[in-house]
Amino acid sequence: MDKKDYLKDISEIKDIMNRSTRFMSLSGISGILAGIYALIGGFVAYKLLLDYGRSMYGSSVLPLSILELILVGIAIVVALLSVFTAYLFTKRKAKKNNEKVWTKASKQLMSSFLVPMLAGGLFTLLLIYRGYYGLVAPITLIFYGLALINASKYTLSMIKYLGGIELILGLLAMVFFGHGILFWMLGFGVLHILYGTLIYFKFDKA
């Protein structure tokens, strides 16, 4: 064996260690699309809230409880569309990379992401139920950030930093209280588009 073979051995060891513990076929395009859905949803929600604020002085158009339902509905539609898009594009990319979608690594990725997300989602619904609307944006960003950091050891390591930034945005949304939708659009919209583009150019294009 000469030097070249030893180098090849080392890179093969690293490759197998990564592939057997991490799911690498996350799609950049689905991140970009999820960001766009979030921005559209955010704009619609912002518009509805503005209209509601104006109508308070004149004749009321929508009762508060209906507006609440619509806002929660928008958030759920954005989330479901994002998950569906992510699944489609990830499946396609995995096929291209010759990686199976349902592996031990991807299962660990899912469970480590979903446990904090489900807790955060239920907690958010309870916040709405109890009337703490202002806390919704900070809390969803914080839980999402924690879920990403938790899941990052089973996928692209750069996801950890995305989680960290989401977490900081969540905390900032609490400092600058009352601008929830703005932080929400930054975290779920702009950041997803940025990160999706980064992943696309770093991993998808090749």
């Binding site: 093969e12 060891i13 197998i16 260690m17 057997s20 513990t21 031990k104």
Partner: peptide, 28 residues
Amino acid sequence: FDHRVRLGIMSALMVNDFVDFITLKELL
């Protein structure tokens, strides 16, 4: 370890508590 497959088996087992036969087969 002077063989690709044995090197691969050990690499996968080092970073996981355990790996089953089918997973190893697909991985390598």
